[in-house]
């Protein structure tokens, strides 16, 4: 009887908490769908730039699924490669092929090389070790580049975002549940002062967090680092600012810590999937478009540009402004959300 009483109580509590209920049933479906799309995507078909390649080779490259871009000279091809319009440049040299890979994504490199091997086996079935005739070079990274080098920037961005989001969100939520928010709002503090104070206080911690994490990943773990440390620092800092402002904003829509944690599968996990951890090109178009509204993707994208491709301000400036924009918008919305607790 007592056990039944407890069971009944739990069922009743769940019925009252529709959100938790939805989370239990709906969230796994959402996450699993995402995973399905990510892992069951089509095989990646590389974009190849060619400079003066005999026609039969081009035909068989296309037959293997490659998209071919033809360039008149090497300079233009190089530029396209740098802009990541193509994954590799193929030119002929003597009796073999010169392959210059973009290099920053090991999975893409692999698919380019595999495709080329298939093609050359097809064209010269009698010659063994056709791959030997391939002369492979890399624009970024090298054949030594491992997955952690590729994922490092993404994971740095993700964990900074995740932890700051949760901690800032829960602590702002606590202000409300312990009544200190009401007490604060009974003093002549302005709502924006409260929000800016929060960002400032946590901001100091996030500066140290950004420093520590960036330093640890690059110096201790030895993750590939081609660009400037200052940019990495700036980007991690801006990412945590965005996470901080988003966390405090969303805490207004949670009634307790559990409901704050429920935002993880809704807000955090989808961002991780689209942050570049998996090749986006194989995902459906509509899903790729979602990343426009996801702060994390702007951060990880810029971090990858700096750490793997050694890019500087010109490349990441856009992403930096977007991150600042996100933070400002979230702060503004938070000031408005606080109207719920005090109109003035």
């Amino acid at each position: 009887m007592k056990i039944w009483a407890i069971m009944l109580r739990i069922l009743r509590q769940f019925r009252r908490d529709k959100r938790t209920l939805a989370l239990i049933f709906i969230a796994p479906l959402v996450v699993l769908t995402l995973m399905h799309l990510v892992f069951n995507g089509k095989d990646y078909e590389p974009n190849l730039g060619i400079v003066q390649i005999p026609a039969p080779l081009v035909t068989s490259l296309e037959k293997q699924g490659a998209t071919i871009f033809t360039y008149e000279d090497k300079e233009r091809a190089d530029q396209a490669l740098d802009e990541r319009k193509i994954d590799a440049i193929i030119t002929q040299s003597g009796n073999g092929l010169d392959v210059k890979l973009e290099g920053s994504e090991p999975t893409v490199n692999k698919s380019v090389l595999m495709l080329l091997q298939k093609v050359s086996r097809e064209l010269q079935p009698d010659v063994n070790g056709a791959a030997d005739k391939m002369n492979v070079s890399y624009l970024h990274g090298s054949e030594d580049m491992t997955s952690i080098d590729q994922f490092g920037p993404i994971l740095i961005g993700f964990f900074v975002f995740f932890f700051v989001f949760l901690i800032a969100g829960v602590s702002f939520l606590r202000e409300r549940t312990t009544g200190t928010l009401e007490r604060l709002l009974s003093t002549p503090i302005k709502r924006w002062e409260l929000v800016v104070g929060y960002v400032g206080g946590f901001g100091i911690f996030t500066v140290f967090q950004a420093l520590l994490i960036s330093w640890f990943c690059i110096q201790v773990l030895g993750i590939l680092m081609a660009g400037s440390f200052a940019f990495v620092l700036l980007l991690t800092l801006l990412l945590s600012m965005t996470a901080l402002t988003l966390g405090t904003l969303l805490s207004a829509f949670a009634n307790n810590e559990l409901q704050m944690i429920q935002f993880i599968p809704l807000i955090i996990v989808p961002q991780l999937f689209l942050s570049g951890l998996f090749p986006l090109e194989t995902l459906p178009e509509w899903l790729q478009q979602l990343k426009i509204v996801m702060p994390l993707t702007y951060g990880t994208e810029a971090l990858s540009e700096v750490m793997i491709r050694g890019k500087g301000w010109d490349t990441i400036a856009g992403n930096i402004f977007v991150l600042i924009g996100f933070s400002l918008v979230f702060m503004l919305l938070n000031v408005l959300a606080l109207r719920k607790h005090r109109k003035i």
Binding site: T178, G179, T180, E182, R183, L184, S186, T187, P188, I344
Partner: peptide, 15 residues
């Protein structure tokens, strides 16, 4: 807002 300075408020819950 400016009148809040004139008030000392003690809430029911210990904030």
């Amino acid at each position: 807002l400016s009148m809040l300075r004139q008030i000392g408020y003690m809430a029911q819950s210990d904030a």
